[in-house]
Write a protein that binds this DNA or RNA. Structure first.
Ligand SMILES: [Zn+2]
Ligand SMILES: [Zn+2]
Ligand SMILES: [Zn+2]
Ligand SMILES: [Zn+2]
Ligand SMILES: [Zn+2]
Ligand SMILES: [Zn+2]
Length: 325
DNA sequence: GAGTTTGAAACT
DNA sequence: CAGTTTCAAACTC
């Protein structure tokens, strides 16, 4: 369901609109499409009479079930480049995101109660198909031999040295850092406890051990690409900017995404407790609704311009439902 | 303990 | 490189 609009784009849109709705001043402005003149679509007025607006949606089977999964038949292949071109207009500033370094979290530097090198309290694995020679196997991934494991057909032991070495080489070819510790590699001069490559969680909120960040007992950071993350600074009230920005895909923005820049400008105006974050379910449902609109427009042979307008209006309806849910 | 959910790793 | 499949662990009941 995210083929049509890449998720980070969606999240950025939703986030910005929420910011602006909450701020109450500005208006979402969208390029209609690359070939058309810039024609802003104003969403805000549509919210003025919320009741009526929702009433008119009664017959809309899509928005009526926002929050549920809708089966989307067929696939819509929209020219993404064109869409990108018609993305949010914003001053292309080069402002970069500078994390508040004084928010330094105190690290229990006392050192973990190191498991006595003797007991090797390594959790036994239960691999059955990987022969413990792929990174699926935690033993292998940690560079350990399997020991007291429950694995089947295990090659991760000195008896299969050759196979094991080959497997290690394959992994290193794929990722030269495959066997480096995923966390704790605090580079010199790095203030905060450095994290790994970041997670990509969607459904766990990064609050379950499915999430590698959570499992490692570290907060998600800007390099994470998670959706609906709740694994960040314990007291979000203290720094809404920081936590809110964690919801955007800063990591791949290279610091100059206009959406991000714009959000940075807007954020300080916000009352912190009015921010509302999006869950994966909401993002998913919204994307589904937008897809349906796109399909509809395509089916009816509407112009790209009109199709995009339909999509954006649907987006507005979805957003309003989310905001008022 | 069986069955489901999850997201990294592997694969195409 | 993105989308899909595989995998073993985390989780639920
Ligand atoms: Zn194993
Ligand atoms: Zn093992
Ligand atoms: Zn093994
Ligand atoms: Zn996560
Ligand atoms: Zn994370
Ligand atoms: Zn996260």
């Amino acid at each position: 369901e995210l083929k049509f609009l890449r998720r980070k784009l969606i999240i950025s849109y939703l986030f910005q609109v929420i910011c602006q709705l909450e701020g109450g001043t500005q208006i979402l402005c969208i390029n209609n499409c690359a070939t058309q003149e810039l024609k802003p679509v104003y969403l805000l007025p549509q919210y003025q009479d919320q009741h009526n607006y929702l009433q008119s949606d009664v017959g809309n089977p899509v928005t009526a079930v926002l929050g549920q999964y809708l089966p989307v038949s067929g696939k819509l292949d929209l020219n993404e480049q064109e869409f990108e071109h018609g993305s949010l207009q914003s001053v292309a500033s080069t402002a970069t995101f500078q994390p508040e370094s004084n928010l330094q979290v105190k690290v229990p530097s006392a050192g973990l109660p190191c498991r006595s090198g003797f007991t090797k309290s390594k959790k036994p694995c239960n691999c059955t198909k990987s022969q413990c020679l792929k990174l699926y196997c935690d033993c292998f991934a940690n560079g350990d031999f399997c020991c007291n494991c429950n694995c089947n057909n295990c090659y991760n032991n000195p008896l299969h040295e050759t196979e094991r070495f080959k497997a290690i080489k394959v992994c290193l070819d794929r990722n030269p850092e495959a066997f480096l510790p995923k966390i704790g590699q605090t580079k010199l001069g790095e203030v905060k406890p450095h994290h790994n490559k970041g997670c990509n969680c969607r459904r766990s909120g990064c609050l379950k051990n499915y999430c590698e960040c959570f499992e490692a007992k570290i907060m998600c950071s800007s390099i994470c690409k998670c959706i609906g993350c709740k694994n960040y600074e314990e007291s979000p009230d203290k720094n809404p900017q920081l936590t809110a920005l964690n919801y955007m895909d800063i990591g791949s923005n290279e610091g100059n995404n206009p959406v991000l820049t714009s959000a940075l400008e807007i954020l300080p105006k916000l009352e912190k407790d009015r921010l509302r974050y999006l869950s994966w379910e909401e993002v998913k449902a919204t994307c589904t609704c937008l897809l349906v609109q796109a399909e509809e427009a395509e089916k009816r042979g509407y112009s790209d311009c009109l199709g995009e307008r339909m999509i954006m209006e649907e987006f507005g309806r979805c957003l309003s439902q989310i905001l008022h849910a």
